[in-house]
């Protein structure tokens, strides 16, 4: 296997940053999140996982779609063309690679594809980094993932004593590896990559997608939802949550820009319809939707869990509503209740 020594990491990133925007996990104002690499960036490759997922790279929290103007009958539209540079996400973990596959399912697998997402996704190369020491809330193995590697990344980095084992998995990945090799940044090694420690949390989701079909009216949701604040912490931190709202950036009564920004099924006004009716009027309906979506509707539709076990929602829910508990408890409750 080829290896990139730790001391060459900065050179490797600098080399790649010459031709692409290279997103790396970094400390930004005290929070670990992905940031475009520059020599000024403080890398934080130890965070498992980074507090903020790389979701925002492919699905920005806010983006402009088109500009409009309407003066009387004189109405015009003009698309906002986003510049999409070649993009590399460096140091993404298995959970977040899997999350991108979920996003692909949503935005690309059926017609019509989401144009803005498609464009960014096509320009993106994933360089995954093995996770050997899972964080306190990780449970990706329970969701069927392998912290040490992911099959659907372009390049997989393995942890070595003093660097990273570099393994290309796609033609795109080969290209990156070739460029690093060309500059003499890679060496051959026979050192076996470090093994991943077991995930801290373990649950067994097997069969709960089927069980949830019978649980729409189960009293379980009442109790679970009673302490939820209906905030957006869980969904906004989640790498697979993809709901958005289309709204306006108004310049005046006539002109503005249609923007898309993240929205969350946990918000009270998320399902409010014109006229005021809210089909999900209470906490119970909203909390149920979140878990039903992740553990039943999504698997039904796309054949995979919409939870990758990254543990972010577990770590930051203000009232400790933990999806690991939900998986466990849904597995345990009796259905006739």
């Amino acid at each position: 296997m080829k290896a990139l020594a730790k001391k060459n990491l900065a050179d490797a990133l600098a080399l790649l940053a010459g031709q692409a925007t290279v997103w790396v996990p970094a400390k930004v104002a005290g929070v670990t999140r992905f940031a475009p690499w520059s020599p000024a960036v403080t890398l934080d490759l130890e965070a498992t996982p980074p507090a903020v997922s790389p979701k925002e790279i492919l699905l920005p929290e806010t983006e402009s779609l088109y500009r409009y103007s309407a003066y009387g009958m004189d109405v015009t539209f003009e698309a906002v063309e986003q510049e999409v540079p070649p993009t590399i996400i460096w140091g993404i973990h298995s959970c977040d690679v899997q999350a991108i596959l979920c996003q692909d399912d949503v935005f690309l697998s059926r017609e019509p594809q989401d144009a803005a997402y498609a464009k960014r996704r096509a320009a993106t190369t994933l360089v995954a980094l093995a996770c050997t020491t899972p964080g306190p809330d990780c449970f990706c193995t329970s969701m069927g993932l392998e912290p040490a590697e992911h099959a659907s990344t372009d390049v997989q980095l393995h942890i070595l004593t003093d660097g990273y084992g570099v393994e290309a998995r796609t033609a795109r990945g080969e290209e990156i590896v070739a460029r690093l090799a060309e500059k003499g940044l890679l060496v051959e090694t026979i050192e076996p990559p470090a093994k991943a420690q077991a995930c801290t949390r373990a649950v067994n989701p097997e069969g709960i997608d089927k069980k949830l079909v019978e649980m729409f009216e189960h009293p379980y949701w009442d109790e679970l939802a009673a302490t939820c604040l209906n905030c957006g912490a869980c969904t906004f931190l989640c790498p697979t949550c993809h709901c958005f709202d289309l709204t306006d950036h108004r310049r005046n009564a006539h002109e503005g820009t249609k923007i898309r920004c993240w929205d969350a099924c946990m918000f009270t006004e998320y399902t409010v319809m014109a006229g005021g009716h809210n089909p999900r009027p209470g906490k119970k309906e909203r909390v149920r939707q979140r878990f039903m979506h992740k553990l039943r509707y999504f698997p039904e539709r796309y054949g995979k869990w919409q939870c990758t076990g990254c543990g972010r929602c577990v770590a930051r829910c203000p009232v400790h509503i933990e999806i690991t508990d939900v998986i466990k408890e849904v597995g345990e409750v009796t259905l006739d209740g």
């Binding site: 309407a70 003066y71 009387g72 009958m73 108004r250 310049r251 005046n252 009564a253 006539h254 002109e255």
Partner: peptide
């Protein structure tokens, strides 16, 4: 001044683009 127009609110934030 807000010109006559169809279907848009008349009272809006100041009309200048920021």
């Amino acid at each position: 001044v807000t010109e006559g127009h169809v279907g848009l609110p008349v009272l809006d934030p100041p009309p200048t683009a920021a």
